[in-house]
């Protein structure tokens, strides 16, 4: 039984909140550079240039790349041989988020859904825990902005609709979302499970590196086809018209009930933030 103290966890979460908001991943920066090359629209090219400059300022000056520093989504992978010591794991995660957002000058954006009164701590975080074999303890912090979250959807399709209905729904979602989710976006799609399972899987699909290959050949082909269809809509960077609306499409599938075909689409803005640490 490996012991991990909550003080280690609090500090790791604190640091990851700041890192995630200051430093855009190399995979996203690479996608911006490719976008700058392939974009036909002058407005679109100028946007890719601005986003590269913005990421550089954020990294150098240690300021958030976007003022919307997100709702803090925390993915935990906890080995069943791990014993957490010194207090509650959930409290430790939330303490780390509170400290990270305070010390890192990150915006606190979490409020009561009715009164809209801000909790002023950016907590509670959304914590998604997987219990796994062994003694690993891995934390991934994925701050998610409200603008792109508002454009995400979960739906229950009819099984007879099959792949075509799935693809049409995803393309239509992008068409309707238009400029709202801060394109260029990453389109994460989860098929199967239950409505809540699909929603979590779609969020998890955002963690995949842009440009990485889907090991499932059928899904890989769907990703390529969807990327072309979505970008052919012409919505472009920031919705001003152009070739690059989506930087990538990431699909996950999961078995479902014989009567259902759940589908979740999670759009992520170009500030596709996630940082991880293994303790």
């Amino acid at each position: 039984m490996r012991e991990i103290s909550i003080t280690q966890i609090i500090e790791a979460v604190r640091k990851l909140c700041m890192d995630a908001n200051y430093r855009l991943g190399e995979d996203v920066l690479g996608a911006f550079k490719r976008g700058l090359k392939t974009e036909e629209s002058p407005n679109g090219k100028a946007i890719f240039e601005a986003l590269l400059e913005n990421a550089e300022i954020a990294k150098t000056e240690q300021v958030p790349m976007c003022q919307d520093t997100g709702i803090t989504v925390v993915f935990l992978e906890v080995g069943q041989e791990v014993h957490i010591t010194g207090g509650s794991l959930n409290d430790a995660i939330n303490d780390g988020v509170r400290k990270g957002y305070e010390d890192g000058y990150l915006r606190k954006s979490i409020c009561d859904p009715f009164t809209r009164i801000n909790t002023n701590t950016n907590t509670p975080a959304v914590i998604i825990t997987d219990i796994v074999d062994g003694d690993i303890f891995k934390i991934t912090i994925a701050p998610k902005g409200g603008g792109s979250e508002n454009m995400s959807r979960v739906t229950m399709l009819t099984p007879s609709g099959g792949k075509n209905a799935i693809m049409d729904f995803v393309v239509q979602r992008c068409q309707e979302a238009g400029s709202n989710p801060c394109p260029p976006v990453i389109v994460a799609v989860a098929i199967g499970g239950t409505p809540e399972k699909a929603a979590i899987l779609a969020k998890r699909a955002l963690l995949r590196d842009i440009g990485s290959e889907n090991p499932d050949l059928e899904l890989k082909e769907m990703e390529s086809e969807l990327l072309v269809r979505i970008n052919n809509l012409g919505i472009g960077p920031q919705g001003l018209g152009g070739r690059n609306y989506a930087l990538a499409v990431h699909i996950i599938k999961h078995p479902c009930h014989i009567a259902t075909l759940p589908l979740a689409v999670n759009l992520c803005c170009h500030a596709s933030r996630h940082k991880e640490m293994v303790l």
Partner: peptide, 8 residues
């Protein structure tokens, strides 16, 4: 304005 270009 450019959404997400907040530091710039």
């Amino acid at each position: 304005a450019i959404g997400g270009a907040a530091a710039l």
